[in-house]
Amino acid sequence: MKIDRVTKHFGGLVAVNSVSFDISEGELLALVGPNGAGKTTLFNVITGVLKASSGNIFFNGKEITGKRTNQIARMGIGRTFQIVRPFGKMTVLENILVPLGKAFYTRLSVFSHSPHEKIFISKAMDLLKSAYLDDEANKMASYLPIGMQRRLEIARALALEPKLLLLDEPAAGLNEKESMQLKEYIEKINSSGVSILLIEHDMKFIMSISKRIVVLDHGSKIAEGTPSEIASNPRVIEAYLGRKHKKGDKSA
């Protein structure tokens, strides 16, 4: 995917300011920056939830700027949300069955195919197994603890068979053990060939998982490089790490 000088402003506020970067196939790229840096806004622009004020986004050589969210998802970009959004009143299994119907939602076969067909159920169970959620398949999604809901969201996005997965702060609010489980899961997904763009605040998590990092501050890209380059970049330290370190708050 290629992001080319994307700008998004809300009235006078510039939330994303001419940001450009690429993600190559199979890469795991982290997007970091202090609160309000424009990371989630950029996610929403990529997925078509918000319209870019200017700039272009290409995916697999095709322009996706201005397309509708469901079309972008169908082209192979899966996402999760900063505040988890599973379909709360569906079971865990049913949550996965929703994206498995993607071939039908644009056709009249939406009337003839059933989510209860064996192939869908077994596909969904496989996805749940790889997310360590197969034991919870028949539970209502909203009853799950937050760590499981996050993995459910990722599994649900994976059911689209995406080429690129956008993860918005998947480790937020997780304890050490859940966070380790999540890291393992993300690495497993990445090694299966899915590119990942990851927003994260937890620097320990980021440093251990990504090979390349893009830093945003006040909507602009201020740095790009390997974890060690980023950690020693003075602009980054000033904008992000430095300030946080002084407060003694590494995780915020």
Binding site: A73, F87, E94, V98
Partner: peptide
């Protein structure tokens, strides 16, 4: 399934190609 998805959460439904 599509109806239930838009009832539960429109933004999530769109992200799931509905």
């Amino acid at each position: 399934t599509a109806f239930e998805a838009i009832k539960e959460d429109e933004e999530a439904a769109e992200a799931m190609t509905v």
